[in-house]
Structures are given as structure tokens and as C-alpha cells.
Design a protein around this nucleic acid. Sequence first.
DNA 1: GCCCAACGACTGCTTGAGCAACTATAACTG
DNA 2: CAGTTATAGTTGCTCAAGCAGTCGTTGGGC
Lengths: 168, 168
Amino acid sequence: MTNVFDDPRITAVGLLFEAHAGLSARFDAQLAEHGLSAVEFEVITRLARSPGNQLRMTDLAAQTSLSTSGVTRVVDRMERDGLLTRRACPNDRRSSYAVVTAAGMQRLNETLPGHLQMIEQWFTGQLDPEALAALLDGLRRVRDAAHPCATAGSDDTSFAEQTETTQP
Amino acid sequence: MTNVFDDPRITAVGLLFEAHAGLSARFDAQLAEHGLSAVEFEVITRLARSPGNQLRMTDLAAQTSLSTSGVTRVVDRMERDGLLTRRACPNDRRSSYAVVTAAGMQRLNETLPGHLQMIEQWFTGQLDPEALAALLDGLRRVRDAAHPCATAGSDDTSFAEQTETTQP
DNA sequence: GCCCAACGACTGCTTGAGCAACTATAACTG
DNA sequence: CAGTTATAGTTGCTCAAGCAGTCGTTGGGC
């Protein structure tokens, strides 16, 4: 705690990474109550918000932090669990869509309210509106600088998740 | 991009997570140039900043995001690569210390300047001082709320890394 | 139309991490 | 001091993820 910590660069990274780790742990716990991992939740959310509740495997990979083979396997598992199905793409026989099933939509609708509540409890609710705005502004600039273009398939989406569109 | 995105909670999480992912990717690339993974860098850094360049396995686990078995294995690898050694604890024969070797210190000293430069380039340098202060203030509050007490072995350390103490 | 490069998805292999079980020491209780 | 309980570290097993290689499909150049 002497000359080591007072380097503001080090501290800055530490804060960001720890905040991330802390929130991840909280979210994981809540998602696990509904039988979802963080990755699965992101996948089902991104699908559910897309037109037709579906996305081509490649586009899904581009939107998430997964490789295409990673997507193949997540979709495998979630298909086995009945949350997703594959559907052939009519135009291009190489491609296939991952589609959210009714059971998948139901699972998502069960999970989301609690998730939003967690966000509010551990993150946004910790700060008054101005402080939150300043935080988000800073994060946005860092994100724009550092993030290696994580948007594909559709327009920019900023990782986000979703609220409660998409129920039929 | 309609009713889905404008929920500030969702966007907030998305920004934080994407900023984290973007920075992680940048840092990983730079660390890889020096033959270190992010976990290995964190381990060697935390050891190097501790008194005697050493820490008990358990304390190391508590300071990192790793389980104790995870620590066993990282230390295995790094010991194999000559960066660390194990040393028996004189007081307690159950415990052992992980100690940074001279080669480990040298590796760290080779890696750190570039790492600090990356932080500045992609994170702290993106914001003017006030904005950075506001960002860090917000992050600190979120971290304090959400982070499940990641400090052990020594006092609070906020994940941080290190500057250039510890060279002999 | 034919060939070849590019693309989309999947599979084998390797790696890294956690959990639970195990061994050994230490500390506490009577 | 004996016996129980807790602690430190390691190991076996499982699982998730990436990379590289494969197969089928598509589209462009000619």
C-alpha cells in the first residue's frame, strides 16, 4: 500500500475489473436459480430480441464473446434442454438459424425481472442519477476505444440484454 | 433498438461488461507477447508486491479470483516455467509459500512498462482528469457494493497490480 | 458451365478452471 | 494427553471454450 497502489492507472483497472467480477458473481447466482449460465442467458437474450427470435449461428457468435465453435456447443446444450431449436436457412443451405422455443421464451420471462432487479440493486441503484450518468459516460468512452467491434449481424447493440419485448 | 435498449439498467451493464471485455482483450494480447496469461500476470504481480515476494497459497487464492485448486495449478505451471518456486512455511507445515524467482521478477519487469502503457492508452488516457475521477468514483461504489470481499492475506488491495517496486 | 476461393457449421484435440474427495498437519476440548 | 474438528494443499474428474482441420455450399472469374 505504499508506492505500489497510488499509481492511478493500476487502481483504475483494479476498480473496473473488480466491479465487473462482483457484478458477474451476483448475476451468475441469480441466473443459476433459473438454470442458466451467463453465456446461455446472453445467447437466449440476443436471440429473443432479434426479428423472429432467431439468428444465424455466425451472427450469434459475432454478437457474443464466443467463437463459432463455442456457439455450436452452447446451442447444442440449449437445444438439448429444449430452450432453442435449429432451423435451416432457406436461402443459404450452409447457414442455420438458432431459434428460441416457447419453453425458451418462458424461461427468459421467468428470469428477466429478477435479473433487472439485480442490476438495480447492485449497480444502478448504488448511484444517484448524475453520478450514474457520469459513470456511464466514462464507460462508453472506454468501451468505444477498447472494444474490438463486437457488433455484427445487426446494428450496434452495446452487448445489452433485454427487457420484456418479444413475448408473443 | 426500440423499447429494448433504452432501459438504462441494461445499457449500463452492457457498457461495463463491454469495457471490461475490450480492455481484457488488449491486455491479454500485450501480456501474451511476454508469455504470460492474465491470470499468471495477476499471480506474479500479487506475489511481487507482497513482503518477501511471496504469499501462502491460500492467501494467493483469496486475492485472486481463483479457487485453491486453481492456484495449485497455476503455480505448478509457473514453477515449471521457472517464474515461481514453492517454499515450505517454517511455522506451519501444512502451508507453503509461492515465491517469485529472479527469472520471474525479470519477466515482470519486462512486462510491466508495456502494461502500464496499455492502461493509459486504452483506459485512463481516454478521459480528462475530472471525467476519470467521476468514473472511478462510480466504479468504487459499485465495487464496494457488489464485490464479495476479495481481499485476504493482507489488507485491502482492490485487485490492483503494481508499478515497479520489488526489483532487488 | 467449370473451377476455385470464400464461407458456414461442425468435430477432434487441448487447455484451464471448479468441485469434491483425500492426506497431512494444526488447534481445540475434555 | 487422546480424540475430534478445522485448515492447507493436492489430485481426479468433469465441463466449457478455443484452435485448427473438415465437409458441404456458394459465388465469382473466365
